[in-house]
């Protein structure tokens, strides 16, 4: 493999939008923090500058339990990006947190055939680069 191809084969890192920088800063410290509305008390995701439940703009990034359950999931067999060639089959899941919001993530620490809807899961952090940690989930 030549050098440009090798460089291309690195897994993509998240490129945070301005509103999600605090989310990724907390993740780097292995904390899962989501925007929580100071007006209606609800969490939301993905981050934005106003609450989609009540449109208030008064909020704070607040830790969540990191517990939830698999709402639905898929298993990638096809390789869409060369960096994932060694990973297939892998699971991408929509995890519904106990606090309500749903996050897209990977379910790790279990073979794909054991993953089910409603399976309870807990967040773990994958240090994918020196200054980037990605929240993933493992079965409880």
């Amino acid at each position: 493999m030549n050098e440009p191809a090798r460089a291309k084969a690195a897994k993509p890192l998240p490129k945070p939008a301005p509103e999600s920088v605090p989310y990724w800063e907390a993740a780097k410290q292995h904390r899962l923090e989501l925007p929580k509305c100071n007006a209606c008390g609800k969490f939301w995701f993905p981050p934005s500058q106003s609450c989609p439940h009540c449109l208030a703009a008064d909020f704070a990034f607040t830790p969540v339990s990191g517990r939830g359950k698999v709402f639905s999931f898929v298993t990638f067999h096809r390789v869409y990006h060369p960096a994932f060639a060694g990973e297939v089959p892998y699971v991408v899941a929509l995890v519904e947190l106990d606090e309500g919001p749903r996050l897209l993530s990977n379910v790790v620490g279990v073979t794909p055939d054991k993953v089910t809807c409603e399976m309870p899961v807990q967040v773990v952090f994958d240090d994918v680069a020196a200054d980037v940690a990605v929240p993933k989930f493992k079965p409880v």
Binding site: K11, W24, F73, V74, V92, L94, C117
Partner: peptide, 26 residues
Amino acid sequence: PKEFAPEYGYFGAVAAHAFGATRHMH
């Protein structure tokens, strides 16, 4: 998408719609 998708190896319309299929099957 530049975050909350590619870092998880989540690409393409096949996967997006497959989520619905899994849920319906469940």
